[in-house]
Design a protein around this nucleic acid. Structure first.
Lengths: 209, 209, 209, 209
DNA sequence: AATGAATGAGCTTTCATTCAT
DNA sequence: TATGAATGAAAGCTCATTCAT
């Protein structure tokens, strides 16, 4: 049953409007870049009027903060989901997480562009850093813990969970950059192969070819 | 060669000014971010007057293009230098290149911030993409060729040079991101260890522990 | 008279709302100044919703006009009351009126601030001028007539009622300004003394020390 | 000799530009009121472009502050001048000061409108209050001191210098209001007569009719 | 009658660019 | 070549007003 059926543009839940504007913001950033995205662009993209963003977000800065927060939350949700839904073993989970990072829903060039747009301002905007750092910490910790489990389970010597989780996280992020810069050249499959080979070479027992 | 010989004081000055302004631009971008860097900031950072940038670069867009070009050239120079100066073997060279990417002169948070600032606009500025892509291609090709050599030399099966070079390049780029976002947590040594472990696991003969 | 009799609850409500909004307007003007008072502020001060002012006053201009009219009416009421209630002689009445102008109910810094806020726009808003002028004329005429009476009654030479009423009216208005600008320094008693001394020096017979 | 003869509009002393803009600001405030004066109006009045005010004053607030400061300084200058130039006796000086307050150069309706525009915001803008208060204190002190001198010189009993100076200062300020509100009715001569009569009634020896 | 989300004109402010010196 | 005052387009933001509920 249609929840509340067709609503006119004048009435929408506060939350819905905010989400609509955040979506529009991401679209604009992906298309025009962060520096060239104006509140007018965002409003236009959402099919609403000039003042709408300030009405719902107070300021452009706040809109961008919220957009980044949404981006991080959204990723976290997918991450948690992938973690939960995957097979019970640490290897299954680790693989699922790597796969997620290279899946079309995450590694979408437009979405990646938005991430990079924010990363590009991280140094000069402490609040972006805070949000990204918190997000990364959460992610790193889980990956590291999975690596620790694998090390404990297998006969792996001379490797540290920290080094591996660092390598893995870095690798996928670096691949996002490749996708951004050389979309033509970038090959999702090859990327996945590179990850798989890495996993195999480190944890041959858990990740046979 | 004549070009590097004595230049007339006039062109020397001109070139010097441009470099001075590019340096100022990078400093500003690192400190304030790309979006907040104005031509006034750049001129001020260089200790010169308002109109100076337009005088030497015509437009802001052009200044930024030239700055990115400089950044890419500078990296290329260091890259070539590391390549030439390193031991004769492919393994030596590969290791030297990886080391370079994590060396303080390249992996400097301020410099990384500038790279990310440009990457953040790559999607919306084809010219940035062109510059970055060209740079990456050059780099990837050399790394891939080194990997190919190692594969040919050693008894490595089931691995492709492409996957490895992809992994390696991605890994260091991803590490730059960690340095940017979590400078406190980021550990250059651990990063190097992660790379070394990876190289060892892939090419155990060439990279013994 | 029917008008002041029982009103229908609807019109009563309507009148009450308008008064409530006028009161809120004066509070806002006193606190934030005329230039910074928004309809949102007024509605908020009244504990009502955004659109309420336009509903009851059509426009902001109209609200301000009505507020000034109310201010003038309110003063006129107090003025008339002071006039009627005071002793029968012209001297009594004149004194009562002067006293009123310096009484806490009239010379209240917040209220004075509102008067000055409107006076500040008098030059550019003919309607404000009209309202103020009408009010002043009424007031001046009565004071002048009282002065005339005193001159007729006493042995005062060489003075004109016009000059005196001008001086008196100006004096109290000027004192309002002192209260506005130097509330700490301003002394209501000293102000009254100044007026009394003036009256005594002009009309020694009617205003003995 | 022409100082620097005709200059183009593009080049003017910083100080001159600022003054030009302050003049334009006063004109605009007098004509349109403070609330309706935009930076565009001011720039237009000065025959310059949009951004000019922010270039020279940083912000609108600052422009207004500086305008009030100028207004106060200008008055102080005229005041000091009148004080110095007048006859040696306290009576001469006092009379000169009163006359100044009613002279066309001070009591000009446009200028008065500007004063009232600022006074209208005094309550809500502490900085305006500061400026006005400082100005008033200076003025009051001199007038009071002149009154004290007259009291000492003459055979005047039962009057305090404070009460008189309060009355005098208030009177002229109040007359400004009359001029603002009822320019048609307001009569400079009658105003001066009112002041003179007052002075005569208080200090008959010093101010004979 | 009352609400409050939405509008859009108009404001202040910023800043790349121009240009007289 | 360099300066820096001036320009003016464009941005973010405010707010009186409208209107569906």
């Amino acid at each position: 049953m249609a929840t509340t059926a067709k609503k006119t543009s004048r009435t929408a839940t506060r939350e819905k409007r905010r989400q609509q504007l955040i979506d529009a913001t991401m679209k604009c950033i992906a298309r025009k870049g962060m520096g060239s995205t104006t509140l007018g662009d965002v409003a236009g993209e959402a099919g609403l009027s000039q003042g709408i963003v300030n009405l719902h977000f107070e300021s452009k800065d706040n809109l961008l903060n919220e957009t980044l927060r949404y981006l991080a939350d959204e990723y976290k949700t997918q991450f948690s989901h992938a973690y939960e839904k995957s097979g019970p073993g640490a290897a299954d989970k680790l693989h699922a997480l790597m796969k997620l990072d290279l899946s079309p829903s995450v590694l979408d060039r437009r979405k990646v562009a938005v991430w990079f747009a924010f990363w590009g301002e991280v140094k000069s905007r402490p609040i972006y850093r805070d949000i990204c750092e918190k997000s990364d910490e959460y992610y790193d910790e889980i990956v590291r813990s999975l690596c620790s489990q694998l090390i404990a389970e297998g006969d792996y010597k001379n490797i540290t969970a920290l080094a591996i989780s660092t390598a893995l996280a870095s690798m996928t992020n670096g691949m996002w950059l490749s996708c951004l810069i050389s979309p033509k050249l970038f090959d999702r499959q090859n990327a996945m192969i590179a990850v798989d080979e890495y996993l195999h070479s480190i944890f041959p027992e858990h990740f046979p070819l």
